[in-house]
Structure formats: structure tokens, C-alpha cells
Design a protein around this nucleic acid. Structure first.
Lengths: 202, 202
DNA sequence: TGGAATATGGACCCTGGGTCCGCTTCAACG
DNA sequence: CGTTGAAGCGGACCCAGGGTCCATATTCCA
């Protein structure tokens, strides 16, 4: 059980880096533009510290993501309907996708950096796998829907960070419109009445 | 009218680079692993020559892509049904997507490099825009289908290179199965009878 | 308070895209 | 042919950015 608690300064610096990275990603145009050296500088910390704390670039992104995602994760794992586990798949799948979309809209730059960041495909990341597994399971419970695995991938692909960024940033599609479009698309795929989306909630 | 034809050696070298790049992308595991220096070396050419001919990395990829795509482009622009322009949208949309999927399966590494290559999102690339515009137009002609713009994006997202690579490469989904899945998915989105895919042709 | 364990930070290394420029090769013209 | 100047060549070079290293500073526990 080698869980030694980190030193106080280490914890403080870790927080500083997280905060600085958050700020930089929020400000900067493209995630490529955010260098780790810049993050370290903004946090008032050396590069070495940053790398010691997070391992590498994806590590930092992941940490940032986990922190932001926490409330969502909780709502999905143990919250009330329509997000929580006690919801029938027909309602839960659209709710999950809508939540994911909103999350990506609220964290555009970060998600862009996370998903399209670099070398390895987003499909290797286990945060993707978590969403996919959940969706896959849900879809498997909807009668008349075959290929839940592929369908889950395809639905998730419709919420990919760079697509969201493109629509929101370049085509200037407003948030509610995008949510409605995704809801409509999802409904079509699920075979429900296409007109009934959700499109409320903040 | 400044269209001067290139010198013979320039043309030869251009071809050599194209061939070498093609070979390297086919061989190598991940497109990141293919260095421009390596391509130049494999082509028996200096880096300067390569950059003079193609401008930059994306330029090379684009050239490679255009070359490979040529027959497909032709079939789409002026070929017989179900790909050609004389096809009703209900049949043409699935045919286009199936063709695109097959193309990506046949050129996995290259498409991976092209789409997820680097800094700027694939949604800026005009090869994407071409596919999207075409699909958008087709979808717009299908009655009862709103949001053709978003739907086109979402359908194209289901054929993204890294997803295709993930399914074909890591999950080992066989070609025909994937085609069937995409056909089924497309049918659902279009609101056709979901059971009737296409899934023939080579 | 002593000293082992842990953290720090910035100089340093490496890789890979992209540029530069002196030299070579082509091809048009006499 | 030989001349000539423009087009092309190539590899040394530059730069940015991710990642490492280690002499030094800080913490924590006894």
C-alpha cells in the first residue's frame, strides 16, 4: 500500500498549474498555441515541476478534464433522471448525448486539446471508452436496435470536439439550435418520433 | 497567364516523392511516424526538393489524397448510379457514404494522416467541405429531413478516419460488417426501412 | 533541530517541420 | 553544339516545443 501523501508545496503547485492551464486554454485561440512552458510560467513554476506532477501533456489535459467532468460523472452515475441510472434507455441516451454536447460547448478549447491533441487517436483514451461503454449498454437495451457498438461510436462521433468547435465557432450555430439538432438526430437513430427532442435544461 | 510547365527533373522528383510517401504511409504503423525527412530520403531527394514541390506536410498529404481520390471523384461527378448525379438522394446518400467508407478502409493510414494530421481541424479542409456540401445538398432534397447541414456533418463523422482505423485496426471489425453497420445507421437516419442496406459491390 | 525524503526549476537535449543559399542541371536560343 | 540564365537541388541550418536531469531548496518526521 505505497500511497504516500504528497508534500504541501507539491499539492499547491499542482493546483496552481491546473488553474493556470485552465485559464490559458480558456483564453487562447487554438489549443496548439498553449505550450507547456507557457503554462508553467503562468503558474509561476518550473517546467520540471509541471512534468513531475502530470507526466506529460496528455496527463495534464486528462487531469483538467477529470476535474471539470466530476459533477457530470456524479450526475450520470447516481443522479436523478433523466441522466441517472434509473432512466429507461429511450430517454437516457438522448439525455447523455445532450449533456455531453453541453459539456463540450462549455469546455470547447479543453476538449479540443484533449480529443485531437496529438499522436494517438481519441479512441484509445479511456474517458472515451467510458462514454462508449455506457452508451453501448443503453443502446443494447433498446429493442429493435442492432449494432449497438457501432451506433454508440457513431452517435458519439456527432459530438466530437472539433465538430462542435467548428459549428459553434465557425458556423456560429447557437447553443440551443445545436442541442435541438443533436436531439433530432439522436431521435432518428433511436427510431423514436423524430419531432420530439428534449432541448430544455441549462 | 503565368502557367509555366515544370522541368522534367522536377516532375520526376515529384513523382518519386509521391511514390515514396505512399509506400511509407502504407508500411508505417502510425502516420506520425512518417517523417518528411524520411520521405525525402526514401525518394532519394533532399528535403528542400520535397518542400519546394509540396509546400508543407499537409500539402503533400493533400496531393497524395487527390491522386488516390481521382477515380472516386469522377464516379461521383459523372458516373452511373448509384454514385453518379442521376441518382435519387435516398439511394445516393448511402452510396456516397459507403464509397467514402471503402475509400477510407483502403487508405487508412493516409486518411488518418490527412484528417487528424495536426494543428488545424479537418473541418477547415476543403476536401471535407466538398463532401459535406454534396451530402448537404442531397439531404436537403429528402422530404421530411430537417437540418441537412448538421445531419451531413453527423453522417460524415461516422466515417472519420480515426474511427474507421479504430474499428478496423483495434476492434478487428471486418470490412463487410462495417459497411453493413454504416448502411444500417444511414438508413435509420434517413428514415428509410432500416433493414435494407446495400452491402454489395467491391 | 538534523537529515532523509521529496520537490524544485531552468538549463539542456532531441526530434521534426520548415528555410536558405551556393551549386547543379535543364532547355532555349544563337 | 556552346552559352547562359532561370529553374531546380540538397543538406546544413534554424526554431519551437515536448520531455529529461540534477544540483539545490524545502518539508516532514523523529
Amino acid at each position: 500500500m505505497p500511497e504516500r501523501k504528497p508534500r504541501k508545496d507539491a499539492a499547491r503547485n499542482r493546483q496552481a498549474v491546473l488553474a493556470a492551464a485552465d485559464a490559458l486554454f480558456a483564453r487562447c485561440e487554438s489549443p496548439e498555441g498553449v505550450t507547456l512552458a507557457a503554462v508553467a510560467a503562468a503558474a509561476g513554476v518550473g517546467k520540471g515541476t509541471l512534468f513531475r506532477a502530470f507526466g506529460d501533456r496528455p496527463g495534464l489535459l486528462r487531469a483538467l478534464y477529470e476535474a471539470r467532468l466530476e459533477p457530470v460523472r456524479e450526475a450520470v452515475e447516481a443522479g436523478p433522471p433523466p441522466l441517472g441510472p434509473a432512466t429507461p434507455p429511450q430517454q437516457r441516451v438522448p439525455a447523455l448525448l445532450d449533456t455531453l454536447l453541453c459539456f463540450k460547448l462549455d469546455n470547447r478549447r479543453l476538449m479540443l486539446a484533449l480529443e485531437e491533441g496529438g499522436s494517438s487517436s481519441p479512441y484509445q483514451a479511456d474517458h472515451y471508452e467510458r462514454w462508449h461503454d455506457l452508451l453501448d449498454t443503453m443502446l443494447g437495451q433498446i429493442p429493435g436496435l442492432s449494432d449497438s457498438d457501432f451506433t454508440a461510436h457513431a452517435l458519439l462521433a456527432a459530438t466530437r470536439a472539433d465538430l462542435v468547435e467548428h459549428l459553434a465557432g465557425h458556423e456560429c450555430v447557437p447553443r440551443e439550435r445545436m442541442r435541438a439538432q443533436l436531439a433530432d438526430f439522436t431521435a432518428r437513430v433511436l427510431g423514436s418520433d423524430p419531432v420530439r427532442g428534449l432541448a430544455d435544461e441549462g
